[in-house]
């Protein structure tokens, strides 16, 4: 009798949980799933406009990272060189977050294990204020010197735009270089070229 009661209680619980989940909007772990907002593939090729977009950012970072990893100054280095990212200049007419490009390259290079990075010049204020809080600074003992970078990475983003009544053509050129800060010698340089064409009459896709 007790077993029968237990069994019926379990059945009731299971059935009610099924019914409850059927009534819930969006299901477990989802809110507002009936709205127009949907998650997409973050790596999908995006062609909403001809402006510099996520696909351009990703493909630029991938190409330049691959090229840098193949360069003999990284690939043949005895131990991972210390690199500091300097500014990449945006010489285009539109706003491009060039730091997003260099940050993405840095993430990929760090994952490769072939390169070590020093704090960005933009973040040096934070590093210096942290140094001021260290024991060495507060007890006024000798501070450890900051590490020299073996190389720095700089670059430029350029664009050429042309348009007539039917076609708009945008060409982006992202170039980067690896420089030895001691000698000033450019050791590696490469570029990523992107062409985007917007046609008023839809041809292709």
């Amino acid at each position: 009798m007790t077993t029968f009661r237990k069994l019926s209680l379990t059945t009731t619980l299971v059935l009610s949980s099924f019914l409850m989940s059927g009534c819930a909007t969006g299901g477990a772990g989802m809110v507002g799933s009936s709205s127009n907002v949907k998650y997409g593939d973050a790596k999908a090729a995006e062609t909403v406009t001809a402006d510099f977009g996520s696909t351009d950012l990703q493909s630029t970072a991938e190409t330049l990272t691959q090229s840098l990893l193949e360069s003999r100054y990284i690939a043949k280095a005895q131990k991972p060189p210390k690199v500091r990212l300097r500014a990449v200049n945006n010489l285009t007419y539109e706003h491009i977050d060039t730091k997003a490009i260099t940050d993405k390259i840095r993430i990929k290079l760090l994952k490769s294990g072939q390169v070590r990075f020093l704090a960005d010049t933009a973040n040096l204020n934070q590093v210096n204020s942290e140094r001021d809080l260290t024991t060495a600074a507060t007890t006024k003992t000798k501070m450890k010197a900051m590490t020299d970078s073996d190389y720095i990475i700089t670059g430029n983003v350029r664009s050429i735009k042309k348009a007539n009544d039917d076609v708009k053509d945008v060409y982006y050129n992202v170039s980067m270089e690896l420089v030895d800060p001691q000698s000033g010698e450019i050791l590696w340089a490469d570029e990523k070229e992107i062409r985007k064409v917007t046609a008023k009459s839809s041809v292709g896709w």
Binding site: D41, K43, A44, A45, T47, T55, Q58, S59, E62, K111, G204
Partner: peptide, 10 residues
């Protein structure tokens, strides 16, 4: 462990 972005080509 990793993947490239979707790369378009014509």
């Amino acid at each position: 462990v990793d993947q490239t972005s979707w790369k378009p080509f014509t």
